[in-house]
Design a protein around this nucleic acid. Structure first.
Length: 802
DNA sequence: CTGAGCCGGGG
DNA sequence: GTGTACGGCTCAG
């Protein structure tokens, strides 16, 4: 049959590979301009790695020995000499090519043992990622290539092709919204949980809510307590709608594993991918891949929002304005079974599920445009870019830059050889405790990347003891020296980032704010900024390929120097400095003087600084990194306070938030003290529901695997004895009761505890009072005053305290 | 005090 | 799939 090649214009969505007939085949999942979902194959790519010889080694002899390692199943097909660079210095390396990706590890280990070998490099780059790097392909971007149609009966797609030319980027699509035209599905399951945490071996999935970006929303319900048909229907829905992107909230650690287990129990196949027979596949670090679709866990993006401490779906959706908390239905999760079994309450449960799904889709609209840009820039597929750490995203880009520069990519350090020494970090100026009015927050723009560029910081420019160089930058205090004779690898990459970002920002100005084009470019410049800002942390990350502790140490040293100089400048101009952290300064908002500070820093120190925000009121305690501010718009920022953490009781969290709000809005500390006393009184008088006192902790492994007996572990054991089935992932809710012995022994399952058993003093001393004092102590309020509980403090209180 | 171990979100 | 975290807290010693 005569095959006719077609010219395809397609968007690269995901990449994987398989081994067919003893040869690797790269599989690109894509959609083309006609809207077809396609599988594109390339069977011409081969795995390889580099061998770096020791100085003076005989390259031909070494090449011969490498060839002799060849095994028939995956022969060494070539060993070539290549001129490359390693940490900026020219080297000749040997490039070893083989056939089967899995054999690389074996050859790597054998090669490393040969005499004359200094290092084996790039043997740990995933094969499919290697392909994208080498062909300079970025997921979510558009390409043009010639391809021949092929038959593939094992996929659920509109067609399959074999690439016959290398894809080249389609410039006309560069500024098109990469999400435009993609089919997005959000889903959320509810599980039956009569005994606290649902147990997938017996508790059915009862509701699956699904929402699509075309507006369709639906809910699937179990028949009573049987979920076999429900799961089959869910698979059918995905087949019918054929989404490109599947989003959920924490679905990688809950919904997918739970559904997989339920499917197994019911003898159903969870065939939701675009490959026949393939189920979602749990991979490392909790990521789950769905073949041919981008499975994105939006919780990964939520984790990066520093301002929200408790990252539950309802909190995050509320913060982002996706769905206000007071406008949605909420059901306490431990009551889900109760709501399911009651026909009236079931309606509420369904509404709750639909609000969760709607919120999830809403979060997708918030996060995915940014994620898609990160994908286009870092080179990681959208599902992986979400799950990857910032350092890993940046490293992927570094590897591409290294290839362009002919640089060999260093290996990660062996775990045991990584230096564990810490170094001095950023400087935090002593806050001025109290409430301050009209405060401007000044922020250095990309401070650490700017330092790296200005002083040419990097492992390749770091001078060893006694090493000479013409132009040298020495970090203040720490004395590390960097050669400025040639540009550092980091500098080259960061300069490209900074230039690129400036271009994008300039292009943005051509569009009205709020237009789709503006939004697209804004997300792009943000993604570039996030990657650039990760470069400092990257150097100090022990897992980094370009790890350089001295570099990170030098950057913070320059940073401390800079912020100290900026604060002095502000003071010398007569401005009060209230606080500063790393790259920010909180100063009195006197516009004229502030302008002078900005000018002095820009021209004198040659770094960019700007007004980030203004607070009409802000208060600091004596503690660093904790403050609460009131913006001119009336919004309250609570930063750093720990009682907004998930493992504190609701009572402590509510109390602290309320105290912060009273103090900021009314300036009246007595009012706040009275409020706390009222809470304590209520607690003493048994007026607080046990539910407000529950402390929740998750069991991350089976009970008997714990060495230390934390309260929630002790309670889990107790629940097991009571006949509860406790599994990994169970959330244990406990309260502390009266009695003797260590705290752990006084923890009880909350549902077994009567209000009169509660150790009221624990909650007062360890929860309410510390949470409230975080704010109130600097107003001179003491523990005793809070605990006086409406009456005058007496000798009795004093003795009790002793 | 230091080090080891655990946690996050979900139901 | 040629294998990816991290910062903050608690408890034990």
């Amino acid at each position: 049959m005569q095959l006719v090649a077609e010219r395809l214009t397609f968007q690269l969505l995901d990449v994987s590979y398989s081994v067919e007939g003893g040869r690797p085949v790269i599989e690109i999942w894509a959609r083309d301009v006609k809207g077809r979902r396609l599988l594109l194959l390339d069977d011409t790519f081969r795995p390889y790695f580099y061998v770096l010889p020791q100085n003076g080694a005989d390259l031909d002899k070494l090449a011969e020995e490498l060839r002799r390692l060849s095994r028939p199943r995956s022969p060494v097909t070539s060993v070539e000499k290549v001129d490359m660079k390693y940490f900026g210095r020219p080297v000749t390396a040997l490039r070893v090519t083989t056939l089967i990706p899995e054999s690389v590890r074996e050859y790597r280990d054998l090669a490393a043992k040969l005499p004359g070998v200094a290092e084996v490099l790039e043997a740990d780059v995933r094969f499919s990622m290697r392909y994208l790097i080498d062909l300079n392909l970025y997921p979510m971007r558009w390409y043009v290539a010639d391809a021949e149609p092929v038959n593939r009966s094992d996929i659920i797609a509109d067609g399959a092709y074999r690439l016959v030319s290398r894809p080249s980027e389609e410039p006309s699509m560069a500024d098109v919204d990469p999400l435009d035209g993609l089919r997005i599905m959000a889903f959320d399951i509810e599980a039956y949980n009569p005994q606290g945490s649902p147990n997938p071996s017996k508790d059915p999935v009862i509701i699956i809510g699904v929402a699509f970006n075309d507006g369709e929303r639906l809910q699937l319900e179990a028949a009573g307590h049987s979920d076999k048909e429900l799961i089959q229907k869910f698979v059918d829905v995905i087949r019918r709608k054929d989404p490109d992107v599947i989003v959920g909230y924490n679905q990688n650690s809950f919904d997918w594993p739970y559904l997989l287990e339920r499917a197994k129990v019911n003898g159903v196949k969870l065939e939701v991918g675009r490959k026949r027979g393939a189920e979602p596949n749990p991979s490392v670090f909790g990521h789950i891949s769905v073949q041919g679709r981008l499975n994105v866990d939006l919780y990964n993006f939520a984790e990066e929002i520093e301002e929200v401490k408790v990252k539950t779906l309802d909190e995050v959706a509320d913060y982002l304005g996706v769905m206000p908390k007071d406008k949605r239905v909420n059901v306490d999760w431990w009551r889900i079974a109760e709501y399911w079994d009651d026909s009236e309450k079931r309606k509420t449960l369904l509404a709750y599920n639909m609000d969760d799904v709607t919120s999830t889709l809403g979060l997708a609209y918030q996060f995915l445009p940014f994620g898609a840009q990160l994908s286009q820039i870092s080179g990681l597929p959208l599902d992986q870019v979400a799950a990857a750490s910032v350092a890993f995203r940046l490293e992927m880009r570094f590897m591409r830059e290294a290839r362009k520069l002919g640089e060999l990519v260093p290996n990660r350090a062996e775990e045991e050889t990584r230096e564990l020494e810490t170094y001095t970090g950023a400087i935090v100026l002593e806050p001025k405790p109290g409430i301050h009015h009209n405060v401007a927050v000044l922020d250095f723009a990309s401070m650490y990347p700017s330092i790296m560029v200005k002083y040419n910081v990097g492992p390749d420019t770091l001078l060893k003891e006694g090493e000479a160089c013409e132009r040298v930058n020495e970090a203040p205090g720490v004395r590390h020296r960097f050669c400025a004779d040639r540009d550092a690898f980091f500098k080259r990459v960061l300069e490209r980032f900074l230039k690129w970002r400036a271009e994008v920002k300039a292009a943005m100005k051509k569009y009205p704010e709020g237009s789709p084009q503006y939004r697209l470019l804004n997300e792009r410049q943000r993604a570039i900024k996030v990657l650039a800002n990760a470069s400092y942390g990257y150097m100090g990350w022990a897992g980094a390929r370009w790890y350089c502790r001295q570099c990170a140490e030098s950057v913070t040293a320059w940073g401390r120097d800079l912020i100290t100089r900026a604060a002095s400048l502000a003071r010398s101009l007569g401005l009060k400095v209230y606080y500063g952290d790393t790259d920010s300064l909180f100063v009195e908002n006197d516009p004229e003087k502030v302008e002078k500070v900005i000018e002095g820093i820009t021209k004198g120190l040659e770094f960019d600084i700007k007004i980030d925000k203004v607070y009409s009121r802000v208060f600091f305690t004596e503690a660093k990194k904790r403050y609460a501010g009131l913006t001119p718009e009336g919004k309250i920022d609570i930063v750093g306070f720990e009682a907004v953490r998930g493992d504190w009781s609701d009572l402590a969290k509510d109390t602290q938030a309320k105290v912060a709000e009273i103090v900021l809005r009314s300036d009246d500390v007595r009012k706040a003290v009275d409020y706390v006393r009222q809470v304590i009184n209520d607690l003493r008088n048994g007026k607080v529901e046990v539910e407000k006192l529950i402390i929740w902790k998750t069991l991350t492994k089976s009970v008997d695997k714990y060495e230390a007996e934390a309260p929630h572990v002790y309670v889990a054991k107790m629940m097991e004895k009571l006949g509860f089935k406790i599994d990994v992932g169970s959330k244990i809710g406990y309260v502390i009761v009266k009695g003797d012995g260590p705290l752990s022994r006084r923890a009880r399952p909350y549902f077994l505890v009567k209000p009169q058993d509660i150790d009221v003093n624990y909650y007062i001393d360890k929860q309410i009072v510390p949470a409230a004092l975080r704010i109130l102590s600097f107003f001179g309020i003491s523990e005793r005053e809070l605990k006086a509980g409406g009456r005058q403090a007496s000798l009795f209180d004093y003795i009790n305290k002793k």
